[in-house]
Amino acid sequence: MQIHIDRAGGQIAMSGEFTFTDHIPFKEMVTEIFAAPGRAVVIDLSKLDFIDSAGLGMLLLARDEAKKSHRELILRHPIGQVKRMFTVTRFNTLFKVEE
């Protein structure tokens, strides 16, 4: 997985595959982005090809972090397998997902 962070804009763009092995970089990134001031945090998923259940679990951690710091978390444009996973696990109703 590759992550590009735009701190000022509160934007994170993820690409590649989001799995078990990305636990540590993702956690660090979440801590960092929520430490920076701002309102909404957007995670752009339009270039993310694959997510497994560990990846979904990490999104839940980000959601928890957003709640704690009274910030809005938006997942933008999931595609393919990621979109299907969101549907089957109803994650599309847990998060604010922008198509």
Binding site: S53, L60, V88, T89, R90, L94
Partner: peptide, 10 residues
Amino acid sequence: DSSGFPLGVE
């Protein structure tokens, strides 16, 4: 169809 929240989330 097997959609539904995973156990332990909500």
